[in-house]
């Protein structure tokens, strides 16, 4: 599903070189739920961005869903992303659209037949326990609900891979636990999940395979 081979990433900020990842290698199999943890600045976000091809590594090879990401045309990048769901710390919901419209937006953008859209959007909303709030606008949601709406949007096309970058970062423990439960449900359905979090407690409580980054290196791979 995911394969990294000696991947390094160096950001250039003017003349300054900022190493974010150093010689990272690992594999993630189909259906795995992997926690990516490490202190702030350890390189978690950088790593996830390489997986959905938001950026390219400076060195090494990245393979996702059986495809090498190094040489891709724009249309191939788009095709890859259609198989990957992504959620962020901020939910990135479109503020002028309801929860339902936010979820349906993805389907409409990708040309899903109109008659399928409502049913599929509500399936996704039900999966995150948000169907009752379908007509609410993002501003009317709690942060936990907003994050669940973002999750619904990420899984509405039932992608085989879900990437979550600090989805619980803005939430209190109870809300974070809700999100984690939803993620576990999604994972139980066969979706491969990579969850990045700097919250060591959360990572430990999950009791899944955990990759620990430190200064851009994988220091531990356990569980």
């Amino acid at each position: 599903m995911i394969e990294l081979h000696r991947v390094s990433k160096v950001y250039s900020v003017g003349p300054v070189k900022v190493p974010a990842l150093r010689e990272v290698s690992f594999q993630i199999g189909k259906g795995e739920f992997v926690v990516l943890t490490g202190a702030s600045g350890a390189g978690k976000t950088t790593l996830l961005r390489l997986l959905y091809r938001d950026d390219l590594p400076s060195e090494g090879d990245v393979e996702v869903l059986g495809q090498g990401l190094m040489q891709m045309r724009r249309s191939q990048v788009a095709a890859l992303r259609r198989s990957i769901g992504v959620v962020f710390q901020d939910a990135k919901l479109l503020p002028v659209r309801t929860v339902y419209e936010n979820v349906a937006f993805v389907l409409r953008v990708l040309g899903t037949p109109r008659r399928e859209i409502t049913a599929r959007a509500f399936d996704a909303l039900r999966a995150v326990g948000l169907s009752a709030r379908a007509q609410a606008y993002p501003a009317q949601l709690s942060q936990g609900e907003a994050q669940r709406a973002a999750l619904a949007r990420a899984i509405v096309r039932r992608p085989p891979l879900l990437l979550a970058d600090e989805p619980t970062g803005n939430l209190d423990d109870a809300m974070a636990a809700e999100i984690v439960d939803v993620l576990k449900d999604i994972g139980a359905g066969g979706t491969t999940i990579v969850l990045a979090t700097h919250q060591a407690r959360l990572a430990a409580a999950l009791r899944r395979r955990t990759l620990t980054l430190e200064g851009g290196r994988v220091m531990k791979d356990e569980g």
Binding site: A78, L94, V109, R157
Partner: peptide, 16 residues
Amino acid sequence: RHETEIMRLVGASELT
């Protein structure tokens, strides 16, 4: 810009 960002993220075609 938010719509564009989301569209890119979910793999919309450049034409769309």
